[in-house]
């Protein structure tokens, strides 16, 4: 399983109620279902992925996070997970607020646009970066609102959203992001994993 999913799972308390927004083919949900909590469901936009989830025995609703989160009552989940999707929404701010309305905590992961390889691409090649975590070209990327982990931390701070866990993932290397190392992690992290409370 992806290192990212292992870290997300480690943040979740046993038997809690979880919503995985943009759950893809259900890999993370299946792991959580088997080992952490059987009270998990997913929201997924792709029909093919919804079928894959049903095949795995997962509860999944076909839908669009920007339109369909409204139907869940306030604080109806302990955790709402959003893995590497925030940057693809038309209005990420609104989605983030919805996640924090529906869930007591949100776990959000974002590909870090501040990673040194990304900066190198732009600095030396003068082209939009294409990396392992950002594999698309500028013209076909689903990512509308790329940000760095520093951007995201600032964004949360400005809105007084509490970051109860901030984790950097670089290759297999996992470390905490702190106030002191933020500028450095903003260079070295490929992925930022944040646990957020309102």
């Amino acid at each position: 399983m992806k290192q990212e999913f292992k870290i997300i799972s480690s943040l979740i308390e046993k038997n809690s109620k979880i919503l995985d927004v943009g759950c893809g083919n259900g890999e993370l949900m299946k792991y959580i279902l088997d080992s952490i909590s059987n009270n998990i469901r997913g929201l997924e936009i792709s029909k093919k992925n919804v079928q894959a989830c049903i095949e795995k025995g997962l509860t999944v609703i076909e839908g669009n996070a920007e339109l369909d989160l409204g139907q869940f009552p306030n604080k109806s989940f302990n955790y709402v997970i959003l893995s590497q999707t925030l940057q693809a929404f038309l209005n990420p701010e609104q989605v983030l607020y919805e996640l924090l309305r529906v869930g007591k905590k949100a776990i959000v992961t974002i590909p870090n646009f501040g990673h040194w390889k990304v900066r190198m691409d732009l600095l030396f090649k003068g082209t939009m970066p294409v990396t392992e975590n950002l594999p698309n070209e500028w013209y076909n990327t689903p990512n509308l609102h790329m940000c760095t982990i520093k951007d995201f931390v600032t964004f949360c701070n400005e809105r007084e959203l509490k970051l109860t866990n901030s984790i950097s993932l670089s290759g297999k290397k996992v470390s905490y992001i702190t106030k002191g190392n933020l500028n450095f992690k903003n260079l070295s992290a490929e992925l930022g994993i944040f646990e957020i409370e309102k």
């Binding site: 109620k17 469901r41 029909k47 919804v50 079928q51 049903i54 997962l58 509860t59 999944v60 609703i61 076909e62 839908g63 139907q71 869940f72 009552p73 109806s76």
Partner: peptide, 18 residues
Amino acid sequence: IVIALNAIGADVGFIEIT
């Protein structure tokens, strides 16, 4: 129907078949 079920936290899955 899905929305009504989600509103009470019921266990519901949904798919629209092409």
